[in-house]
Nucleic acid binder design. Sequence first.
DNA 1: TATTGTTATACTCTATAACTATA
DNA 2: TATAGTTATAGAGTATAACAATA
Lengths: 155, 155
Amino acid sequence: MTVEVQADEVLETLEEALVRSAYYVMGVLTRIGGEHDLSLSQLRVLGILRDRRLRMTDLAAHLGLDKSTMSGLVERAERRGLLARDKNPEDGRVVDVFATQAGHELMERMHVALRREMASALGRITPEAARELVRLLAPILEEAGKGIARPARGR
Amino acid sequence: MTVEVQADEVLETLEEALVRSAYYVMGVLTRIGGEHDLSLSQLRVLGILRDRRLRMTDLAAHLGLDKSTMSGLVERAERRGLLARDKNPEDGRVVDVFATQAGHELMERMHVALRREMASALGRITPEAARELVRLLAPILEEAGKGIARPARGR
DNA sequence: TATTGTTATACTCTATAACTATA
DNA sequence: TATAGTTATAGAGTATAACAATA
């Protein structure tokens, strides 16, 4: 009983630690994205398309957004020359999206900036602790990778 | 030399793990917030005001948002009866913001929902691992708590 | 003069509903 | 009929600039 209460408390603490670190990371991403006029969503789209080409629907599913939202996001990124659209040759309804050379280059710059920005926080961690953290975060990330997010109802 | 390269690689891996877990947590927060018509920003405002009362400027600083953005956020939450504004008696320019009873109750429901939603991910972690995770995340959270976020330039 | 907050404006982000084109 | 995507619409979230009130 006492053990369960303690276990509950430590989970509570962990939950708060994860939420706070998430806000921290999002803050960093928002800032470095903002320096290059990229919103969190645009940043994420570019990140997802770093190593693949996806149709609109799959992209929307990955982001947990409606396909109409996706159209706007891609449209604005395309206008800036970061993404491009191609009609899928096998299914006339499908539109494939992929990052352009400029998109890849911008993403690379974002990545470098992220490393730099997080250095002060991560620099204080020993390689052993980092390895341990990665190991302990694995089950959470596994859960994260499971269901592809779906858009929330209403507003 | 070899050791440094390895250290660099593990930091790279940790960075990716942190970013991915941040996206996961934000996804969960977005979903449970959305179920009660609360955006991430509204959720965060309510969370910050859970145990304190802040003036508009300080609230904006905590969130890393412009004060004009804050006005709109608070205005909408106030219209829903979740927050309230009071003129500060000591400085006529200042407006203090605080959560109403309804705001506190909604926040409590959000908290319960968050526990439930994250249970499947956190449930797979032993109490020992959870304690260790909290300990390892501490230096990052310390960094997070340092500078209060400021709004990004431009758009 | 400087600080605090609001308002006007212009975009981006978002979902819903209605639509077009393809299967 | 069903699926993929776009467009029209409405509203939230965001920053900049201009403003009013207070210090």
